[in-house]
Design a binder for these strands. Structure first.
Lengths: 223, 223
DNA sequence: ACCTGAACACCGTTCAAGT
DNA sequence: ACCTGAACACCGTTCAAGT
């Protein structure tokens, strides 16, 4: 029952910036499920209600974390041909999600941020217009690319987590090996190859190649 | 303070099946955030702990709901050339997610189900092998397609929700019109076109076309 | 303005008990 | 087996209050 007089933050040591950073760290460590305002307050050595000085509520805090975690992805401008620009922007977004796995949950609850992500949004859309798409198709390609990157990378993060947890890993293995070969011959035969697609740059690049090749094709037929 | 003797389920009226169905309905109505075991119990006219007769805990229940909601997508077999088969499977999966929006959250927390989705998994992978992909690339294409469909459709569901809620809608509009045109010229110029990409079959088909065209291209170069 | 503790209406789940 | 109420350790947030 240690009651060692809690080292309270003396005065004005806190700031919105600091709260967001600590929240991001905690979110990445324990997951969005286990994250709570009270746990964050304890981390910061502060009473729960203190955090409400900086944010109207939990939702607003999570939005700020999402913008903050996304912000760093937009620092430098992409260069080269449109294919290379699109590739660069997609890789950066994936990199940012892998670095902050909590982004998978935050992006799915509330999609794309406002100002923080505007830089890379602008770059991506510009690259697609430069590629030769008309206004409608450039916008369609833009939304397709974002959905693809977030979707594929979210799947990657989940599968990697599943692989790390030995208990869940064993369960998945049992389901796969338990599938009747006469009903699911292809799944059973390709089980090893499927396991190979769990994460990794090669898997991401494969999908990105498909999408870009598809866009090149589309530009020839009807831009 | 109405205490009108709650119409308790008499005996053995409940079943795992019934609990799952009620859970799915409640989840789609109030969202995964607001869903709770206690609320579900109230819906069923039963004490919260009763549900633990059928499921070890909330997680197991959500897994069952996910499998149940996904199951109906796999009823009939796809036919025709591989392109048409892939298209059909993707459309069905999207259709199922649109019908049960809670699937976006359930699929992102725990990816692809086991047995319930094995039917369409088998069909999809078989179509890709038939297309001519080697084992490694068929598996890579498989994971790419699933990530794409779930990602793009999740984005669709979120954007549609955002559009329905007038308050959030106004907020998004303000962010877009508030963007400085000299810093984000492309975003500002294409704001109308971007709004057009929020949901709809045309948007989904556009992305699906890109992916399939990309696969056709890839098959020529290195299957 | 910044920070606090007490209180309220919720959660998921354990436990001992009833049929 | 099926179903229950009481209790425990949590939540996010309101409120009145302290500096």
């Amino acid at each position: 029952m240690e009651t060692t007089a809690r080292t309270r933050v003396p005065r004005n040591t806190l700031s919105a910036e600091l709260v967001v950073t600590a929240a991001l760290t905690l979110l990445d460590r324990v997951g969005v499920e286990a994250f709570s305002v009270r746990a964050l307050a304890k981390d910061l050595g502060v009473a729960p209600m203190t955090l409400y000085t900086y944010f109207r509520g939990k939702d607003e805090l999570l939005d700020a974390v999402r913008d903050h975690a996304l912000g760093a992805a937009t620092l430098t401008t992409a260069y080269g041909g449109w294919q290379h620009q699109v590739r660069t922007i997609c890789r950066r977004l994936r990199g940012q999600i892998l670095e902050h796995p909590c982004l998978t949950a935050l992006l799915q609850q509330r999609p794309l941020a406002g100002h923080e992500s505007a830089e890379s949004s602008e770059s991506l859309l510009r690259a697609l217009v430069e590629a030769g798409f008309n206004a409608e198709n450039a916008a369609r390609a833009y939304t397709t690319v974002l959905g693809f990157v977030v979707g594929v990378t979210t799947l990657e993060v989940r599968l990697l987590e599943e692989n790390r947890d030995p208990e869940r890993r064993e369960k998945v293995r049992q389901i796969m090996t338990g599938l009747p070969a006469e009903r699911y011959p292809t799944l059973v035969e390709h089980a090893a190859a499927l396991r190979q697609t769990v994460g990794g740059d090669a898997q991401f690049e494969f999908g990105l190649d498909l999408l870009i090749a598809g866009m090149e094709q589309r530009l020839i037929l009807s831009p």
